[in-house]
Computed example of a mutant assay.
Amino acid sequence: MQTIFKVLLAVLISFSLHSCEDKIDVNLNDADPRVVIEADLTNLSRNQEIKISRTVAFDENRAFEPVDQAEVIVRSSTGRVYTFESIGNGKYRHANMMVNAMQEYTLLVRLDGKEYTATSRAPRFVEIDSMGITKETILNDDYYFINLSFDDPGGEDNYYKYSISTNGEPFKFNTVFSDKFNDGLHVKHQLGGRNIEFENGDSINLRRYSLAKDVYTYWSEYQSTNPGSASPANPKSNISNGALGYFGVSTVKEYKITIQDEDGLSQ
């Protein structure tokens, strides 16, 4: 049984710095430390941030060792060069870099005499035409889901990622989709239930990303990994020289929606 509810919907186009706390879990069984690079550059803000760390052994009292002495450069296909400055704790920042759709960006990290490189292209953003809430009752419990509908562009590969913030909490990765089986069709993406449960009255901010195939592959493998297994696999990185992590440039829009029954009460 599904019931459609009234929702509050607003597209937030923001050019201020947004924090996103997508935490990356990797297999630390490797004997030698591995470099981990996390670069999620978007058009939401000119403030861009890249994180660099090393893996540590299981008996360490921390998950990663921050790296602050790397040289970090991003080059665009238009010839712009962006040098990121270390701000401590493994974070590198550039305060005036805008990601543009259909441009290619190349990452170069120099660290301890080694170079790590990756190239990614920012796709055009695919707009939605509607967003709403459904409720499903399963074993007498109510579950809310966010549904986004849109026309997938035909004749091209499209990949989508979603991150969600509930009631002002940090953004967390939720899921990814491809158009492998619905290219050119009217599509509905349903969010919720995988690693998040919405409740009546929740204020939700969600980010919808259009991203490149290799970055989609990383997140698809990430969400398929069983962290409880004895030897979880590391998602396939698009960064050279054995580095873990990913380099992505994406076009993004942020939406706001409130989980609200018609009478404003939980059922």
Results as ranks from 00 to 15, higher is better:
residue 12 L to E: 11
residue 16 S to G: 11
residue 25 D to G: 08
residue 25 D to E: 08
residue 30 D to I: 04
residue 32 D to C: 01
residue 34 R to D: 11
residue 34 R to H: 09
residue 35 V to K: 01
residue 37 I to L: 01
residue 39 A to K: 02
residue 39 A to D: 02
residue 43 N to F: 04
residue 45 S to Y: 04
residue 47 N to Q: 05
residue 49 E to R: 15
residue 51 K to S: 10
residue 52 I to Y: 07
residue 53 S to G: 04
residue 58 F to L: 08
residue 58 F to K: 04
residue 61 N to F: 06
residue 67 V to C: 00
residue 69 Q to Y: 03
residue 70 A to K: 01
residue 72 V to N: 00
residue 75 R to L: 10
residue 76 S to C: 05
residue 77 S to F: 06
residue 78 T to I: 09
residue 79 G to M: 10
residue 80 R to L: 10
residue 81 V to H: 11
residue 82 Y to I: 06
residue 86 S to E: 03
residue 89 N to P: 05
residue 97 M to A: 08
residue 97 M to G: 04
residue 100 N to S: 15
residue 105 Y to S: 05
residue 108 L to S: 12
residue 108 L to H: 05
residue 123 P to H: 00
residue 129 D to A: 12
residue 130 S to I: 12
residue 131 M to L: 13
residue 138 I to L: 10
residue 141 D to H: 09
residue 142 D to N: 09
residue 143 Y to G: 14
residue 147 N to V: 07
residue 149 S to D: 14
residue 152 D to Y: 09
residue 158 N to H: 08
residue 159 Y to I: 04
residue 165 S to H: 00
residue 172 K to H: 13
residue 173 F to S: 06
residue 174 N to K: 14
residue 175 T to R: 15
residue 178 S to E: 08
residue 185 L to H: 07
residue 190 Q to T: 15
residue 195 N to T: 06
residue 197 E to W: 05
residue 197 E to K: 09
residue 206 L to A: 08
residue 208 R to I: 04
residue 210 S to M: 11
residue 211 L to F: 04
residue 212 A to E: 12
residue 214 D to G: 01
residue 215 V to N: 01
residue 223 Q to Y: 02
residue 225 T to S: 12
residue 233 A to L: 13
residue 235 P to T: 03
residue 236 K to R: 14
residue 236 K to S: 15
residue 239 I to D: 00
residue 239 I to G: 00
residue 245 G to C: 07
residue 245 G to H: 03
residue 245 G to K: 01
residue 246 Y to P: 01
residue 248 G to E: 00
residue 257 I to E: 03
residue 264 G to L: 05
